[in-house]
Amino acid sequence: MTTDSFLADCRARLAFDLLSHTWNAVVLWALRDGPRRPVDLRERIGGISSKVLTETLRRLQFNGLVVREERPGAAGRVEYRLTELGESLLTPIGAVGEWAFAHGDEVMAAQEASCASPREG
């Protein structure tokens, strides 16, 4: 991979696009311990509406990162689980999370400083 691969390679852009959607990484991380029902995901995640969760799960399913499984028994019981492909994203998501914990205060300080200083240009 050349140094310009991130600029020109559609696959690299695809990966960044998958992680740039606000809820994709959060939902994938919430599924890391095994299958969950949508209601359980909403409780575990917090702050996500049913509509947005449904859209996110559909997007993740479309991209082959999660599988929707209907469970026998109670009607309408559906669970989502990570695919092998989805599990492979947990390591990069974890790395980004570690970076955020290590540098989040610095980023917020830079944002505050930028908002406090007059804009140049």
Rank of each mutant, 00 (worst) to 15 (best):
residue 73 G to M: 07
residue 81 R to L: 12
residue 89 L to Y: 13
residue 110 A to T: 09
residue 50 S to T: 04
residue 119 R to I: 08
residue 4 D to A: 13
residue 70 E to P: 00
residue 99 W to F: 13
residue 50 S to C: 01
residue 25 A to P: 07
residue 17 D to N: 10
residue 42 R to A: 08
residue 44 R to N: 04
residue 52 V to E: 15
residue 116 A to H: 01
residue 73 G to P: 12
residue 20 S to T: 11
residue 41 L to Q: 09
residue 65 L to M: 11
residue 95 A to R: 10
residue 91 T to P: 10
residue 22 T to H: 13
residue 35 P to T: 02
residue 112 E to W: 07
residue 57 L to D: 02
residue 36 R to N: 01
residue 18 L to Y: 05
residue 85 L to Q: 12
residue 106 E to M: 05
residue 91 T to G: 12
residue 68 R to K: 15
residue 65 L to N: 02
residue 30 A to E: 07
residue 34 G to P: 01
residue 23 W to F: 04
residue 80 Y to V: 08
residue 39 V to F: 08
residue 82 L to F: 04
residue 12 A to N: 09
residue 53 L to W: 05
residue 61 Q to V: 01
residue 23 W to H: 08
residue 77 R to M: 04
residue 13 R to P: 02
residue 74 A to D: 14
residue 44 R to L: 12
residue 32 R to P: 00
residue 60 L to H: 03
residue 106 E to K: 10
residue 29 W to G: 01
residue 111 Q to N: 03
residue 41 L to N: 03
residue 15 A to E: 06
residue 40 D to E: 12
residue 101 F to D: 05
residue 28 L to H: 00
residue 116 A to S: 13
residue 62 F to P: 00
residue 84 E to T: 09
residue 82 L to I: 01
residue 49 S to N: 03
residue 12 A to I: 14
residue 90 L to Y: 07
residue 26 V to M: 01
residue 116 A to W: 09
residue 118 P to H: 03
residue 101 F to Q: 02
residue 48 I to G: 03
residue 101 F to A: 04
residue 34 G to I: 02
residue 88 S to V: 07
residue 24 N to L: 11
residue 112 E to I: 05
residue 68 R to N: 02
residue 118 P to Q: 07
residue 49 S to T: 15
residue 88 S to Q: 15
residue 82 L to T: 05
residue 55 E to A: 14
residue 91 T to D: 06
residue 74 A to E: 14
residue 109 A to Q: 14
residue 102 A to Q: 15
residue 27 V to T: 02
residue 115 C to Q: 15
residue 49 S to A: 10
residue 38 P to L: 00
residue 54 T to K: 14
residue 112 E to S: 13
residue 87 E to R: 10
residue 99 W to N: 09
residue 17 D to E: 08
residue 92 P to D: 10
residue 115 C to P: 01
residue 64 G to N: 12
residue 95 A to T: 08
residue 67 V to G: 00
residue 1 M to I: 08
residue 87 E to N: 08
residue 82 L to K: 06
residue 71 R to T: 11
residue 29 W to T: 11
residue 93 I to A: 00
residue 58 R to Y: 06
residue 93 I to P: 00
residue 74 A to R: 15
residue 120 E to R: 12
residue 86 G to S: 06
residue 83 T to A: 11
residue 80 Y to A: 05
residue 115 C to Y: 15
residue 89 L to T: 05
residue 60 L to F: 00
residue 84 E to R: 14
residue 61 Q to C: 10
residue 69 E to A: 15
residue 56 T to R: 13
residue 87 E to S: 13
residue 89 L to S: 07
residue 49 S to W: 06
residue 24 N to G: 04
residue 52 V to G: 00
residue 82 L to D: 02
residue 7 L to M: 10
residue 111 Q to R: 15
residue 45 I to K: 07
residue 56 T to P: 08
residue 19 L to M: 09
residue 28 L to D: 00
residue 113 A to R: 12
residue 61 Q to D: 12
residue 58 R to D: 14
residue 50 S to L: 06
residue 93 I to K: 00
residue 19 L to H: 14
residue 69 E to K: 13
residue 37 R to N: 06
residue 64 G to A: 02
residue 32 R to N: 01
residue 3 T to F: 07
residue 31 L to N: 00
residue 79 E to F: 05
residue 103 H to L: 08
residue 101 F to I: 06
residue 46 G to H: 01
